[in-house]
Design a protein around this nucleic acid. Sequence first.
DNA 1: CAGACGTGGGC
DNA 2: TGCCCAAGTCT
Length: 330
Amino acid sequence: MTDLKATDPPVTDPPATDPQATVAKATAHASPGRLSTLHRRILDWYALEARDLPWRDPGTSPWGVLVSEVMLQQTPVRRVEPVWRQWMSRWPTPAALASSASGDAVQAWGRLGYPRRALRLHAAATAMVERHNGDVPGTLPELLALPGVGAYTAAAVSAFAFGQRTAVVDTNVRRVFARAVGGSGQAAPSLTRDETNLAVALLPEDHVEARTWGVAVMELGALVCLARSPRCPDCPVRDLCAWQLAGRPAYEGPVRRAQSWHGTDRQCRGVILAALRATTEPVAQCDVDALWPADDPQRDRCLDSLVADGLVEPLPGGRFRLPGRQDLTN
DNA sequence: CAGACGTGGGC
DNA sequence: TGCCCAAGTCT
């Protein structure tokens, strides 16, 4: 082992606010030797410890990768896996999904949460049929133009499905870099320009290494560099980690407000949608009414917003269903 | 840009 | 129990 401390910047350095300075600092910290060590350690660790997830199978299509990435937005791997398998079995291509009703996508989404993702995936499938001959596009601008595909998902599909040398920055990557390079216990509340620049600067030059780098760092964040209780003794770069070397100081930055839940529109919308998912039969207004305390205007407001979002289709006679779903009860 | 947007599990 | 967290996106 080389003398790592000798090359470390003083841990008392104030956080840089200038993007250029941050990248310069990161690059200095990650001198060629250090950087290659960081890369090798994490890539070796990944080769040994990576989970066997179905969408990581080399035979997975770009569509399979895209579906997995959308499902994984804010949703744990454990809950995504079975739904992804069913989804890919039912809709193996964008064209297959596009030919189904959007309500079928919402129904198949099940309890993954944030059901607008299902709607957007359906819209993305339609767009791919119309604009890309039914294929998932391979360039960042084309990917970003798809509904529900933002900076993270576009980069992930570019890197994981098409093997491009693209920096992937998700919450795991941000946390790992904040600690290992920034010396901070956690990343800032929202993605900063500095973090993106840093992720690009840390991308391995070697194309083969770059292919796996993103998913390897993400995996490290998901399995070892955990938010609440990091497993530092198991970390392959614990001796290089700026946060570790600084004595794992507590996070001092701005705190993110916790999401409230009880009594929110999100809860109300979830209750209504769960009822519609459970049946192919249109649900009568009175049955919707029974789902939420009487004389609470929140219920009607949420039903209206679900309709406005395209998650619920109002039918003549005051009945409701998931959009386009056929009534299979007779 | 802060806030909305689901759901379930861990501590 | 209640709060925090999980491969974000959109407005």
